[in-house]
């Protein structure tokens, strides 16, 4: 089963996704696909908090800031994969090469990797961020990123069995359900 979880920032998406992944795995192997590449102490603190939060939940952490399709090689098999987050994945693929310019191939690479997980994992939970509803005129750079993330989100929404919007920790089902 594949589940997509979206919503605004700081709504408890990661914690919720971890619970879902644990339940989906039904005692089987579970992988936490860590996508954040730390750049400063703030990032490192956030990562530490996430690691502490999931301690004792039985996740094995796989670092995949880029090339998310590579997780199977690293995991050496299937199981339940929690990809947290699509937002960071795209950021890394789009901006960390190409000398500061947005890489036009980034969306394609992300879709390639995500489709591997959708098709092979067994169970997967994807976390993304809803960044599409503010009254602001962004620069072209940021608009390009927003439009690209929307392509990934909509691709996942189409492919996943269940699509959830988390609002202040409460669940809105946009597609499917969770019978766990």
């Amino acid at each position: 089963m594949n589940v997509l979880i979206s919503g605004g920032a700081k709504n408890g998406k990661t914690g919720f996704a971890q619970d879902i992944a644990v339940r989906l795995s039904a005692g089987g192997r579970r992988w936490y696909v860590a996508t954040m590449i730390p750049y400063d102490d703030e990032d490192r603190k956030r990562i530490k908090k996430h690691i502490d939060d999931r301690a004792g939940m039985g996740f094995i952490t796989i670092e995949a800031g880029k090339n998310v399709g590579s997780v199977f090689e690293k995991a050496g098999g299937n199981g339940t994969f929690l990809v947290d987050s699509v937002t960071a994945l795209l950021m890394n693929e789009m901006f960390s090469t190409h000398g500061g310019e947005a890489d036009p191939e980034a969306v394609g690479r992300c879709i390639g990797g995500l489709s591997e997980i959708l098709n092979k994992a067994g169970n997967a939970v994807f976390v993304t961020d809803y960044i599409y509803s503010d009254a602001f005129r962004y620069d072209e750079f940021t608009e390009n990123y927003r439009a690209s993330l929307a392509r990934l989100d909509r691709y996942l929404a189409e492919k996943c069995d269940t699509v959830i919007e988390l609002c202040a920790g409460s669940v809105i089902f946009h597609k499917g359900g969770l019978e766990l």
């Binding site: 605004g8 809803y130 599409y132 509803s133 503010d134 009254a135 602001f136």
Partner: peptide, 17 residues
């Protein structure tokens, strides 16, 4: 377009908008 979930915009016109 739903433009209602961000922070209060800084510019006066954007707030009015």
């Amino acid at each position: 377009e739903d433009i209602f979930c961000g922070v209060v915009p800084l510019g006066k016109d954007m707030r009015a908008w």
